[in-house]
Every structure is written in structure tokens, then in C-alpha cells.
Design a protein around this nucleic acid. Structure first.
Lengths: 141, 141
DNA sequence: TAAAATTAAATTTTGCACAATTTAATTTTA
DNA sequence: TAAAATTAAATTGTGCAAAATTTAATTTTA
């Protein structure tokens, strides 16, 4: 029964820390007018300027129920375009706009600023990366 | 700029894995009729049968905006009672009901089942616990 | 090739999360 | 002790998440 003690729950630690990270991002992303999930979409588009809702969903592990309204908001802000593919009308293509490309510069300092705020002992970082990567790879099998 | 690559983002890994854990809990908690945040509240109450919204919020790192409606749902299910403190009318006391106490038995197998589903290499577990505990302790300073 | 199956997004619904504000009670302090 | 400050919940509003269903397009297969 001691496994029901909240302090012993690894999953609660993930849940709590993940939310904490989002609050640390908030002031940094506010300057770009983005939420954290919106920022993740922009990260993907900064790597590859054109993609689809499906591919985006696979990369971020989010479904269309989450992405459709989120992408509409980003389109509203003028950061990306949404359009039906002409070769397959089921597909919606997402492409970076000039404005969307522009704010990549402003975002370039965010990763460092954020990690500073997270303030993880830097010796723990490689281990965390390794363990989490392994765990996430397992999900995607 | 390579820090803007999504695969390099530790925070995305936390975000994605935390959501993944919640989906693993879902079928287990469905038998109790609970969501994951509701389950966390029950974990706290199974340790200490009476508490307050404020204390609960500190333990789970959630505010009244999240807890108030969540606690109303748990009260609706008959698992806990909400009542204003008589000594300080600002405070709402939360107490476990007989029904709420009863389902602790049903929940006793969940931690093991969940960790099996998470399928983390068991050699990584102590490290994860240690690193996350340290990081969460820093938040609460 | 027509029917069946599959696929991609969108929609609907429920339930968090959290910032900001409000309300009411209690404490502090001038 | 009356005014000011603080505290605890509740409320309001926005934006995820994810399950379930719907819609429309494409692919498979009988």
C-alpha cells in the first residue's frame, strides 16, 4: 500500500514538473505571443517550412482534435498558412509564412534562457536526455 | 540555432512523456471512474482523510481554479465531502467518504500495473526518482 | 469498377490548467 | 478598533488534450 503514497509516485513527478516547465516558458513565449504547444509547432516549422497536420501530429504526438484549433490560431496570427493539398484533398498542408520565419530570430535565445530557469544540475542533463529518449522511443514503436 | 531543433528539447520530452503516462493510466482508472488528476486527489485523501483545498493545492501544485470544479465532480461521485470550516469560513475542508475509502482497495494494484505499462528499464528508476525529486524540491523553495 | 475499408481533418464533448478577477472572511497595523 | 492588507475559494475566460463521432476523399478488394 506504500506505493499509493503520493511522494513515491514517479508519474506525479513527471506530471508536476512538466506543468512547471510550461510556466517557466510562459514569460519567454509571451514576447512572441505564443503558448507552449504553439511554440512546439513553430519549432517543427522552423526545421521544415512545409508539412501536414498528420506529420505534425506524429512529431508532437497530438491529434487533429488538438491541432486543428491550435493551427487556426497560429494562422490567425499570420505565422502559418493552412491549405488543402491539391493532390490529396484529405490532407491539410501547413506552411511557414514570412512573418513566421521572422520570429525565429527572436526565439533563438529561448532554449538557453529556459534551461537556465529550469536550473537542473547540468551533470544530470545527459542522463535525463538519455533516459527520456529511450522511454519516448518505446512509445513510438 | 541547433538548440531550436525539437529532438534536442528536453522540455518537449517531459511534455510528451507526461501526456503518455496519462493515457496509460486511463484504462486502469476507468474501472474506478476517475481521471488522473482526480486519482491524485484520492491518493492524498487515502493518506490523510481530511484536508483543505489550500493544502491539497500545495501538495498537487494546483490552484483553486482547477481544484474547485474537480472536487465538485468527486463530491458528485460520492467520494468526498466539501464543507466550509466553522472556525475559518474562508477555508473549505475536504474529507473522504466511506465510499471513497472503499475504492482504495481497488486502486492498490494500479501503481504496479502502471509501472509495468510504462516499461521503464528498472535500472533507470532510482536515477529518475532522484533527479526529478531534486528538481521538484527546487520549485517549492 | 462498384462496394468496402481506410485515411485525414474536423467537430463535439468533457475535463483539466492557469491567469486574472471577484467575493468574503480574517489579520494586521496605524 | 476601524481601515488596510492579506488570505482562501470561487468565478470567468482562454487554450489545450483526448475520446468519440462525422465528413469527405482515397485506396483496397471482391
Amino acid at each position: 500500500m506504500e506505493k499509493l503514497l503520493i511522494r513515491n509516485q514517479l508519474c506525479f513527478k513527471f506530471y508536476a514538473f512538466s506543468r512547471h516547465i510550461t510556466t517557466l516558458y510562459k514569460p519567454l513565449l509571451a514576447e512572441l505571443g505564443l503558448t507552449y504547444p504553439q511554440y512546439l509547432v513553430m519549432l517543427v516549422l522552423w526545421e521544415k517550412e512545409q508539412t501536414t497536420v498528420k506529420v505534425l501530429g506524429e512529431q508532437l504526438m497530438l491529434d487533429s482534435g488538438t491541432l486543428t484549433p491550435l493551427l487556426k490560431r497560429l494562422a490567425q496570427k499570420g505565422l502559418l498558412n493552412r491549405s488543402r493539398s491539391t493532390t490529396d484533398e484529405r490532407v491539410v498542408e501547413i506552411s511557414l509564412t514570412t512573418e513566421g520565419r521572422k520570429i525565429k530570430q527572436k526565439a533563438s535565445c529561448i532554449p538557453d534562457q529556459l534551461m537556465q530557469a529550469v536550473n537542473t544540475e547540468s551533470s544530470d542533463l545527459p542522463q535525463l536526455h538519455a533516459i527520456l529518449s529511450k522511454m519516448i522511443d518505446q512509445i513510438q514503436e
